[in-house]
Each structure stands twice: as C-alpha cells, then as structure tokens.
Design a protein around this nucleic acid. Sequence first.
DNA 1: CATGAATGAGTCTTCATTCAT
DNA 2: GATGAATGAAGACTCATTCAT
Lengths: 220, 220, 220, 220
Amino acid sequence: MNDPSGFEFAFMNVTTKTLKPRKSPVQARSAASVAALHTAAIQVLTREGLSRCTTTLVAKRAGMSVGSLYQYYPNRDALLATVLEQHLNTVATAVETACQQCRGQSVIHMAEGLVMAYLAAKLHSPDESKALYSVAGERDGARLVAIMHGRMVIAITQMLVSAPDAHFDDPALTAGIALGALSGPVRTFLEGLTAPGFDACLAEQLTLLLQGYFKCCATT
Amino acid sequence: MNDPSGFEFAFMNVTTKTLKPRKSPVQARSAASVAALHTAAIQVLTREGLSRCTTTLVAKRAGMSVGSLYQYYPNRDALLATVLEQHLNTVATAVETACQQCRGQSVIHMAEGLVMAYLAAKLHSPDESKALYSVAGERDGARLVAIMHGRMVIAITQMLVSAPDAHFDDPALTAGIALGALSGPVRTFLEGLTAPGFDACLAEQLTLLLQGYFKCCATT
Amino acid sequence: MNDPSGFEFAFMNVTTKTLKPRKSPVQARSAASVAALHTAAIQVLTREGLSRCTTTLVAKRAGMSVGSLYQYYPNRDALLATVLEQHLNTVATAVETACQQCRGQSVIHMAEGLVMAYLAAKLHSPDESKALYSVAGERDGARLVAIMHGRMVIAITQMLVSAPDAHFDDPALTAGIALGALSGPVRTFLEGLTAPGFDACLAEQLTLLLQGYFKCCATT
Amino acid sequence: MNDPSGFEFAFMNVTTKTLKPRKSPVQARSAASVAALHTAAIQVLTREGLSRCTTTLVAKRAGMSVGSLYQYYPNRDALLATVLEQHLNTVATAVETACQQCRGQSVIHMAEGLVMAYLAAKLHSPDESKALYSVAGERDGARLVAIMHGRMVIAITQMLVSAPDAHFDDPALTAGIALGALSGPVRTFLEGLTAPGFDACLAEQLTLLLQGYFKCCATT
DNA sequence: CATGAATGAGTCTTCATTCAT
DNA sequence: GATGAATGAAGACTCATTCAT
C-alpha cells in the first residue's frame, strides 16, 4: 500500500499495448488512483468473484467513477491483467533472487531457500494471492502465468545445475515438477481447504517435500 | 419454524438437492440428454471459456433447445456444477479405491498406487480436466472442490496410517501436502505450461516426489 | 407495409455477412418483426435523428424489446444498413427497369422515363427517403450508396448509348451528371427546403432539365 | 407573456446568439484558437466521422485542452454548427456575388458564372466540403442549410429575372432546381462516387446542364 | 486563463430465464 | 415434452461537460 518507490515495470515485453495502463503512473495522483484500483480489484474479486467483478464496482470501491477507471486502463481485462502481472512478477522475482543466492549451495539449502522465498511472496498477501487464481485462469491471465512460470523454471533450473552435491539428468524437468509441487499445496492452503494450523507446518513440509525429491532425482 | 427441507451438508454426501438434475436418469432419453449436455458443456467450456459458455450454446451443441436444458437443470450454475461434480467424483473415487487397495503396503507402493490412480483419472480426458479448472474457481465449484478434496485427504490419510514400514506423526497433514504436490504439477501440465514430452515422465517424477516425501516424513 | 411477397435480396453481393439479418425472414413472425423494425427505424430516424436513433428506442417503437432486435440484426449498424439497402435497392431497380424500357427511344422519352421512375421511387415514401439521407452519410451507408449509384449509372449509360437520335461522346459521364442532377433537387425537396407546391412542378422541371442536358451533350 | 428574448429568425441574418463563439475574435489569440479549432474539427470529422468527432479529439488536434475549447464554444454542437455555417456562408456569399455580377447578362453567361462560382467555393477545400455533409444532416445543420439555401435561391432568382434574353415564368422555381442540379453532381463527386478525371469535366458539364435548362425554361 | 482529470448519464450488446405455441 | 422467440436486467465502455488546481 505504501510503495513510494513506484511500480517496477521490469518486464515490458510481457504486456501487449492494449493491456497496458493508459497513463504511466508518474504523477502522484495517477499513482494513487492506480494503487486504489488494484486494491479495489482484489477486494471485489475476493468478495464477489471474477464474474461479478465489474468495472463499476471496482471503481466505486476505489472511490472513483467508472470513467476514471477507464482513464487508467483501456478495459476491464487490462486492469485485471495488470494486477495479476504485478503479483506474479513479485513472486517470480522473489524466486529468481532466491535461486540466484542459493547457487552453489547444497540441494538441502536450495530446497529451503526456494520454499522460503516462494512462500514469503505468496503468503505476503493471502487475499490477493487467492483472488488472483481466478484471473489466472482467463485467457490473458494464462499468458502471464505461462511467462512467469517460465521465468521461475529457468531460475530454478540454473540453481539446480550449480549444485555441488548433486547432478540432475534433466534439471529443467526437475525444476518444473518442483515448482508445481510447491504451488499445489500453497493453492490448497490459500483456497481454505486445509485444517487450521496448516500454515504453521507449510514451510517445513514443503521443504521436506523438495528435499526428498531433489535427493531422489540426483545422480551420484 | 425450523427448516423442514433439512439442509444437511453431510460432508461425504456430495450433492445438494439444488445441484442435482431435476430428473433422475431413469429414462434412457433423459440419461442420453444429460450425457450430451455434459459433453457439450465441456466442449463449449474448452472452446469458448467460462464466460462465453452460454446455456444456448451448450444446448445447441448437445443437439437440443435451451428450453430442454432447463428441463434437466434449474439453471446454468447447476449444470456446470454437476459436470464438475461428476469429474471430481470420478477422481475422488479413483483415489479412494486406490488407497483402499494400497492399505497395508509399503509407502513405496502407496506412492506409486496413489500417483497412478490420480493421473489415470485426471489425464483420462485432459480437455475435460483442463476445462473444469475455471468452473472449480467459482463459488459453487469451490464448495465441490472442498468436498472432494476432503474425501481424498481422508482416504490418503487412512492409507498412510496403515503403512507397516512407516509411522506418520500427522498423517492428515502429510496426506494434504501429498495431494497438493500431486495436483500442482498435473495442473501445470494440463495448462500447457510444460515442455513437450513432459507427460512421459510425469508418473515417474510424481512417484519419486511422493516417495521421497513419505520417506522424509516417516518416523522409523 | 404489406408486402407479402417477402423481401427480395437480389443483391447478395452487396452486403457483408455481419450486416445481414441474423435470420432470414422466412417465418411469418420473423417477417413481421423485421418489417416492424424497419418502419420503427425510419420513424425514430425521422423524429430523433441519427444520433438519437438508439437500438432501445427503435425496438420499443417496434413494440418489442432490445433483445428481440438483436435476434434479427447483429448490431445497430446492420439494422440501419439493411433499411438503407432496401430503400436504395428499390430505387436502383426502378431506375434499371425504366432504363431498360426506354432503350431505343428518343432522348426526350429517355429523360421523361428516367425522371418518372426515379421520382416515383424516391417520393413513394418521402419520410423514408428523407430519413435515410443521414444513414447514407455513414461509413456503411456510403458503401451501399456507391454500389447503388454505380448500378444506376450503368443502367442510364446503356440507355443513352441506345438512343437513335443522339450520340454521346462520354455516355457514362453524361449518365453520372444526369443522375446527380436528378438527386440534387429531389434531396432539396425532401429536406423541405423548397416552397410549398414545389412537388407539383418537380417532375416537369426535372424532365426539362435532363432533356436540355441530353440535347446539349448529344453530337450529330 | 410574449417571448422577451425576441427570437427573430431574420432569414438573412444567419447566426443565432447561441451558435456564435463566446468571444468575438478581437484578440489575436482568440482568432487563432478559433481558426485552429475549425481546422481541427474538419480534420477529425474527415478522419473519424461525425460520431467519433469528440471535443477532446478536436481540442487536442487544435493544440489545446478540452477546457479551452469550451472557452470558445458552449458545446460541441455549437462548434460544429459554426464550422458548417462558415463553410456554407462562404459558398452562399460566392454565389451571391457571382449572381450580382451576372445580372443583365445572357442566360448563357449566367449559367457559366453561377457554375464557376459555386464550384470554386465548393471545391476550394474538398475535404472540408465533404466532411461537412454529415454535419449538415443534423438538426442544427439542417437549419443552417435551409438558411443558406434560401439566400442562394434568392440571389439566383434575382439574377434570372434580370436576364435580357429570356423570361422565366417562375424564376424562383427555376433557381431552386438549378441550385439542386448543381449541388447533386458536386456531392456525388465529393463523395468519391465518380470516375477519376470526372472533376476535369465537371465545370463544363454543369454549365451545359444549366444552359440547357435555362433555355428550356425561358419563354421567348 | 489554461489544463485535463473526474464525473456519470447514456449506448450498445449479451445472455440467463421464461412461456406461448 | 420440446422449442426457440421474447424479455430485460446488467455490464462494458464512451464522451460531453465541469471544475479544482
């Protein structure tokens, strides 16, 4: 909510023209409005679901009129896509950073580092993470998911390759499975399907999961 | 003044009254129509997406009129929920059966049996599985997912408890993580985010994943 | 209003798919609805002007709901284009027929025949003719106008060529000017810019106009 | 209870209060801005069409903000009406001047003078002439067209009356037809419905047209 | 005075649902 | 029972106009 450093649009290649905000959030007013719209979108998404997440409702919740929403986004999909992209980008970046830092360490540490970074990013704002699952299922969302997924798989792969204590025959495959194995339980948790107290064990269990997997996969 | 309809959410008793077809598929005609509607719904879902999956379109693709669709389902959501429920039920039942059969076996076999059953059910009709992810994200869908998830976690838990070669401190937790770890990579695969040839390794990798995890979790 | 013979879609090549009625007016009900929409469109066009000729208003005036309008036309432009096309087609056909019949006659008769046919078609329903001028100015309308204009110029040209008592160096040019000279005063009249009683002299004056022009243009 | 505002439609007194720029173009700045707006309006009209000729777009193309536009015009219609009025006024004035100069000459010269003046005015800026047809079809536009048409008919009538070599039974009628006969082909040309090279013959043909007509109409 | 962000009424269009035939 | 035309509420989006800065 207070991120005065401004948004990082590090992945310009990701978005198409039509999905980009109409105005770059340079001016303070614009930035505030855009932020309000993002927050509002997530709230409406959470409370009403994707199909009832209407532009009018989002604008109202953000304290502005529909017209203003369209000053910042060319259409509803662009708004949702931007919110999703921001979220996914945060997660992907966190994973990339963690993978970078874990290079050359043991697979035990790698598993732990990866899990910690992923969880921290994903659970930082559970409502947001949960709400955006529905957006991720839509056409535009799927594209973004694919891109971010790709980034993370690459990062993990490069990390695995650098392991001194293990060799992976198909590191990209292992990375893909590992990422999926991470996201599955996290989604289950975010969607409220787990028993209370589950979150306390989540990090530990996921670390065990990946450590076991990495060990099994490793040759030599 | 008590609710005479007795809305009991027997957790294992999957369906509620409102989500059931109006007709029991006793007559051949009805059964055929319902089946046609299910197939059609999945096709339209696949080709058009959730928001453009309209009742008229589904009915047409099923070779009947909208009016007839409403003969079998009280509304659009009921149709989609039923289709989803059927799918989830198939998967849950497959998992339950496999878990039943693996009781008393080694955790190695358990992992293998669980993975095989889950994959077989999920990949039997990939289009269907993929298409229904969007339905699962909606209000009604989430409820069904929760129910089915619960069934599977219970089944897996009971299986784990019966393992002669391992003891789990919190078998339900382990079961939940295991199920999530299974569904994550499968979803990744179904959503087309994996490299070609991924499916060939999927069963093997998931088995490794669960075996590693089960071993790590087990106390002596 | 009572044209039980149904509409003649003699110029299938004229319309694009998206501008065609969604349903062919085969059934009596459909035909009636389509006719009602045409009439209503012209009325709204006359009373409110093009910009206020909204789909809701047209539907209401036609005694149905918006939804029904969209059962017959894919969008507002298609409705207006169809109405315009019908009108222009009537006029063009009338001119073609007259030109056919006047072939081989003197230019005097040609002028008279052309004027009579054009006027009869154009003044048959003055409100309609007037109302459609605005539609003719829009993108889609301009295309239709161009097509129909082309048809009439060709018809007139072929007629002129057949004149036994005159030779035209550039008959197509003469035909184009003649048609323009006809449509100009008629539009002036329809738009209400002329004094009362003007219509009584219109046929005579236009005949004089064309006769004088044809004589001037003719060589030999 | 009489209308104290005295809305007199002096027919020659072209403009009404509400359609005039709010500022008299005394200051150089205002004059420049108004001129820029006129030019911009025609450009936008040409490129986008009437319905997409928005105030924001016009202002932007004129190098100013919407707010400034409203400094000069009370609303969108007033802007368009003024642009149209200016155009029509130029044409009408040119015709009036020509008719004045042709008084007392032969009908042959009259026809030529009228055609030349009309064409010169109308084709001076073809884009403008064409673009304004759509504006002329709207409510306000029709009123202006009527006024200007009236001025021209009067001018032509007075010219015809002064012809030494011809007598017209109903000179106003003849004038009206002549003006219509002129505007028809010109519109056809401006709307791009004529073959390339048409413009080269336009003056000549229109002169022939009117000369032939005048001769036919004349008594003795 | 200029600016351009904000407003929100008004359009088009879709689609779940009903019901006369 | 089947049909599919009719309904109309609801949502996306535009744009004339205003007004705080």
